[in-house]
């Protein structure tokens, strides 16, 4: 259980926007992290800073115990696959694979060729002539076959059809099981990866909202529905994130420490209780003002604000 990445008070300001605002967290070896958040939340910026592609305004970064900037020892152990990656004109798919093979110490050529077959990548085609989906597939092949101890996938599925996305998830999990490493998966398709990710990092407007075990998070946020009075009574034990009223019944998303006792209490109040999906949790937390309060460590509920 050693930390691969440690980040302290990381801040990145552009001229008019603060892309990251005093973010602190650490990543533990051999886990799959889901880096979640809305467009422009700061996910890509964070990964660019961790890979020394961009420069922080302030704060500390440690990757494999050292700062990654111009650090060959650190950089050679990282693979960063981003949706916006550009390739030199004139390169064909096979050239990109050969280039990746030259650069990554852990490159598995046989696995890369197998993956390229799986995603039906035409080796002879110029990279500039690939469709959006094929370009994404090429990134995925490079990212998986690099077998880098720290691998970032920044929205790697753009333009990929459902079948290819499922193939990506399946191969990611299979290869991760065989060759454990730290993987950070930045994605909008939260429901699709919710079974895959073990840990959740949620960023909103440059701030880290959640840094939590995915399984624990699922237990922390529940949705209760039933008579308004009963729901009102139940949510007093937690933080209400969201509520929908339908006549005399209410449906509320609540965050708190819910064990078996909470289940019994819901039943006795005549309420239905279900665990929220990861996507629900993320949506509710990023749209709720209580989410920010909870993220900042405050437990005080402000129900009016969410209505």
């Amino acid at each position: 259980m050693s930390a691969v990445v440690t980040v302290t008070d990381l801040t990145k300001r552009y001229r008019t926007v603060t892309a990251l605002d005093r973010v602190s967290f650490s990543l533990t070896e051999n886990r799959i992290y889901g880096l979640l958040g809305r467009n422009g939340a700061g996910k890509t910026t964070l990964m660019q800073l961790l890979t020394a592609q961009n420069f922080a305004t302030s704060g500390e970064i440690s990757v494999f115990g050292q700062h990654p900037y111009e650090n060959e020892r650190v950089l050679s152990r990282i693979s960063f696959i981003k949706e916006s990656q550009t390739y030199p004109s004139g390169l064909r798919v096979m050239h990109v694979l050969r280039a990746a093979g030259l650069v990554y110490p852990g490159w598995d050529e046989e696995y890369a060729q197998r993956l390229a077959d799986v995603f039906q990548l035409p080796r002879e085609r110029h990279v500039t002539k690939l469709s959006r989906g094929m370009l994404s597939a090429l990134g995925i092949v490079v990212g998986l076959a690099s077998r880098a101890p720290l691998t970032f996938f920044d929205e790697p599925y753009l333009g990929l059809d459902a079948v290819s996305r499922q193939l990506f998830y399946d191969h990611l999990l299979a290869d991760y099981t065989e060759h454990p490493r730290t993987i950070v998966l930045s994605t909008h398709l939260i429901d699709e990866v919710s079974d895959l990710i073990e840990y959740v990092l949620l960023i909103d407007r440059g701030r880290l909202l959640l840094d939590v075990d995915a399984e624990a998070l699922r237990g922390q946020v529940v949705t209760v529905s039933g008579p308004v009075a009963g729901v009102d009574e139940f949510v007093r034990t937690g933080t209400e994130l969201h509520r929908v009223l339908l006549g005399g019944t209410a449906r509320a998303t609540v965050r708190g420490d819910f064990g078996a006792a909470a289940r019994d209490r819901a039943r006795s109040l005549g309420l239905d209780l279900e665990a929220s999906s990861l996507q629900d949790i993320v949506v509710r937390l990023t749209t709720s003002t209580n989410g920010h309060a909870a993220g900042a460590g405050s437990a005080t509920a402000n129900k009016e604000a969410t209505r």
Partner: peptide
Amino acid sequence: TQDFPFAIGLGLSRRS
């Protein structure tokens, strides 16, 4: 304009 973004994307240092 073209090889530099590619090389950095593959995790090479600016110096290298």
